[in-house]
């Protein structure tokens, strides 16, 4: 089975909150000294793909659209034992929107060949838009399923389980298909082993420009179906008050009297 996994590199969500800054003018987060890491749901997708490959054989390709820094995430994917990787180099400084990314990924996938299964993370940990997967499926004309937490591959049939608000649903599809992966206890990303880390720097990693995949900068700019009008960090206003009282019952009574108006005002 040939599987392609689209991955995204983002600012480390575990960076200290005090170090997180946004640029109000460009309406983007500032990197500062933060690390760049692979989006966690993308790593869940990688793990899912590798487990399918290990059970059925085949090949896993990782694909990303980003800057030269994104090579680190693709090398990590290779260290997780992905077979090959491709990077489409972004042009310009600003982050593209979901529609633009879907266009680029679709053109890249068309160039890279045919795949039985395309996996992505359900959303990214920076903007959390969660639109790219659906738009990519539309571009490629593939069936897609979101919030998938496990996939079984048998005789060309893919059985996908997706999480819903009320439980799970199971769907069966013959490839090619696209799934947006969410996390579960079975797709926790593996930690690359030392030998595989070393080998990851000897595996093929192709870099393409937009022109290489038949696109121009104009094709992927100005396509916004939404606009970020403002970007700011919420200010926290913490007020602390100690409830006074001679007994627990009295304190509970005082506390209740303070809460009741707030509850009433918000109900």
């Amino acid at each position: 089975m040939k599987i392609l996994v689209c991955i995204k590199q983002i600012l480390d969500p575990d960076m200290p909150a005090r170090d997180f800054k946004v640029n109000a003018e460009t309406k983007e987060a500032e990197r500062g000294g933060a690390n760049l890491v692979t989006n966690i749901f993308c790593e869940n997708a990688l793990e899912t793909a590798l487990q399918i490959k290990e059970k059925t054989s085949g090949k896993v390709t990782a694909l990303s659209y980003g800057t030269d820094d994104t090579e680190d995430s693709l090398r990590k994917a290779l260290a997780m034992t992905v077979d090959e990787a491709a990077l489409i180099l972004r042009e310009g400084d600003s982050n593209p929107d979901a529609e633009a990314v879907a266009k680029v990924l679709a053109a890249a996938i068309t160039k890279l060949g045919e795949f039985d299964l395309i996996l992505m993370g359900r959303e990214s940990g920076d903007w959390g838009v969660g639109q790219t997967g659906g738009l990519l499926a539309e571009e490629l004309g593939l069936p897609s399923l979101a919030f998938v937490d496990s996939i079984e591959a048998n005789d060309g049939t893919l059985t996908m389980r997706r999480q819903t608000d009320s439980g799970t649903e199971t769907a069966t599809v013959t490839g090619p298909a696209l799934a947006l992966i969410t996390n579960n206890e079975f797709n926790v990303p593996r930690i690359p082993k030392t030998r595989d880390v070393m080998m990851s720097y000897r595996k093929p990693l192709e870099k393409f420009s937009l022109a290489d995949i038949g696109l121009s900068a104009e094709d992927v700019s100005g396509s916004s179906f939404y606009e970020v009008t403002d970007l700011s960090i919420p200010t926290k206003d913490v007020q602390c008050e100690f409830v006074e009282g001679d007994s627990i019952d009295e304190k509970i009574g005082v506390l209740a009297s303070k809460i009741q108006p707030v509850v009433a005002a918000n109900s």
Binding site: R75, A79, M198
Partner: peptide, 18 residues
Amino acid sequence: EPVHGAFREAVRQFLGKE
């Protein structure tokens, strides 16, 4: 070199988990 950086991340993950 970059490969040591990748190894460092794997070590960090291992220590964080184990």
